[in-house]
Design a protein around this nucleic acid. Structure first.
Length: 367
DNA sequence: GACTATGATTGTCA
DNA sequence: TGACAATCATAGTC
């Protein structure tokens, strides 16, 4: 039996589309079988459905009850089922599992990495702690800023979780509400469990879009916080006068070979209260800037030479056995003596131990 | 606000 | 991988 036949054939016990259409209706029991009366009844039922939303809740409940008990209800329900069957076909295949949103995954990963989402790790910013430590080299200032950063991050974390909780709660409430509504409606119109699932899916999708916005703005907030607190360039602090003094002294007392070993760098870092990489940076910058501005550097070198010489002479008075008084480091013997006597610095003008002279840190005769 | 000093970063090279 | 050179970005000074 084809569709057309089925739709118009009354013997199957089905009420078809045409049965609710007055112009095509012959009555479920055949033509002339009180057709007009039944048409009227169905018309009434439909009218009641159309007006049900305008009525008060109690009234509507009562009407709903009447409708449910109506003898034509199963027949009408079948019609609706049939219509549904036809229309749902088009959406049936649209519910395939979607892959996880890469953008959402990226946001999630970032929030976890930053300690905003996921389990709280040591104040919510282990990553921040390591980043700060690396950037600051353990300066006292950084401790204050670090705790400040942690506090702000914890604040962001708290807001994020509060908002997320709110969204989830609202989503659950709304979903429950809609599911209940659909279940209730399923008594008067055909609603399959799959449709309810689909509706739940739609709601969840809408809420996850809101959630994504929340995650996005949280990420932005963390980025701003990070750039404000952790960007090393932004938080550049000049070294203490003492630290600069120590480094400069070492530089000029090793001018023929201003390349401290790792051990010396560590020692300098410890004395200056900075990191080894900062020491490396400092020497890198110093060497380049020394070369670039040799005239000015010589002035500075002579200043340190004079200082070293006076220190050495006073050392000689108090401890004549000491070979050097200018440096706290275990200098190579020749340099120590030169530095102790101010010889190396004086040689600057003679062009022997600085890049402007014969030794341009080619390192062949650095020691 | 302009200018300089300076610590840090980045890209290149040996 | 360390050094160098260029550059950035902030601090400090005038």
């Amino acid at each position: 039996m084809d569709d057309q036949q089925r739709l118009t054939h009354p013997s199957q016990g089905q009420v078809n589309m045409s049965s609710v259409m007055p112009q095509a209706y012959d009555g479920p029991y055949g033509p002339g079988d009180h057709g007009d009366q039944r048409k009227q009844e169905i018309g009434d039922v439909l009218q009641q459905i159309m007006t049900i939303t305008d009525q008060s809740l109690d009234e509507a409940q009562a009407r709903k009850h009447t409708l449910n008990c109506h003898r034509m209800k199963p027949a009408l329900f079948n019609v609706l089922c049939e219509i549904k069957e036809k229309t749902v076909l088009s959406i049936r295949n649209t519910q395939e599992e979607e892959p996880p949103d890469p953008q959402l995954m990226r946001l999630d990963n970032m929030l976890i990495a930053e300690g905003v989402a996921g389990p709280e790790k040591g104040g919510g910013s282990t990553a921040a702690a390591s980043a700060t430590a690396a950037a600051s080299g353990g300066q006292p200032d950084s401790a204050i800023e670090h705790s400040d950063y942690r506090a702000k991050l914890a604040q962001i974390r708290q807001i994020y979780h509060t908002e997320l909780e709110k969204y989830e709660q609202a989503c659950n409430e709304f979903t429950t509400h809609v599911v209940n509504l659909l279940r209730e409606q399923s008594r008067t119109r055909p609603i399959q469990p799959k449709e309810i699932e689909r509706m739940v899916g739609i709601i969840r999708k809408k809420f996850s879009a809101i959630e994504m916005q929340l995650k996005q703005s949280t990420c932005e907030a963390v980025m701003i916080l990070r750039s404000r607190f952790l960007d090393a360039r932004r938080k550049r602090r000049n070294f203490t006068k003492n630290a600069t003094e120590i480094l400069t002294e070492y530089f000029y007392s090793h001018l023929s070979n201003p390349y401290p070993s790792e051990e010396v760098k560590e020692e300098l870092a410890r004395k200056c209260g900075i990191s080894v990489s900062q020491v490396s940076n400092w020497f890198g910058n110093k060497r380049i800037r020394y070369k670039k501005n040799i005239g000015k550097a010589q002035e500075e070198a002579n200043l340190y030479a004079a200082k070293a010489a006076s220190a050495a002479s006073s050392q000689m008075v108090t401890d004549p056995s000491s070979p050097t008084g200018s440096s706290n480091y275990s200098l190579p013997s020749s340099q120590s003596q030169m530095a102790g006597q101010g010889g190396m610095y004086m040689n600057l003008n003679g062009g022997e131990n600085y890049p402007g002279g014969e030794n341009s840190w080619g390192l062949e005769d650095s020691e």
